[in-house]
């Protein structure tokens, strides 16, 4: 299956829950001996506060562009047969699947490395924001702290 000369590199946004099985299927290649995946889930706490769920907002045009760049970087850096990432937008409950990354490769190192690279870069670069709802107070947008002191959410 598949053409070994053209690794798959795909990034998508999904506005509804999605099934992982066909995504995994899409990474099968005769030359691939390894497959690694990462699933990011909504947990019920963050920073010591009880989380009831969250909303993901994306600047879709740029998120798709930057996401595509990231999976293409992974294909260029690691000896993979395919890399695919899907990120949810919209409302998610606790336990919901927020992001999925899959990578297939001839050998396991490249599959693990590509997976790790994609999730790390997506978190750092793709314009998607979390609006987190708490069971003990008002919801807020999350903007990770960088250098300097962040403004309080207004």
């Amino acid at each position: 299956m598949g053409d070994p000369r053209t690794p798959l590199a795909r990034f998508e946004l999904a506005d509804a829950p999605f099934d992982i099985a066909p995504l995994r299927e899409g990474l099968l290649r005769d030359e691939a001996g390894a497959y690694a995946s990462f699933e990011g889930w909504i947990r019920n706490h963050n920073d010591g506060r009880p989380v009831g769920g969250l909303y993901y907002e994306a600047y879709a045009a740029l998120a798709l562009e930057e996401g595509r760049r990231i999976v293409e970087e992974a294909v260029a850096r690691f000896a993979v047969a395919g890399v695919h990432c899907v990120h949810r937008v919209g409302e998610l409950p606790v336990g919901g699947l927020a992001v999925w990354v899959g990578a297939s490769a001839a050998h396991r190192d490249a599959a693990f490395d590509a997976c790790r690279y994609v999730i790390d870069q997506v978190k750092a670069r793709v314009p998607i924001w979390k609006h987190e709802r708490y069971t003990d107070g008002p919801a807020q947008w999350l903007h990770p702290d960088g250098p300097g002191s962040p403004p309080q959410p207004s």
């Binding site: 990011g40 993901y56 990120h87 750092a124 314009p127 924001w129 903007h143």
Partner: peptide, 10 residues
């Protein structure tokens, strides 16, 4: 034009 605050996906 879009001003992009620190992102929090993933």
């Amino acid at each position: 034009v879009v001003f992009i605050p620190p992102v929090s996906g993933g």
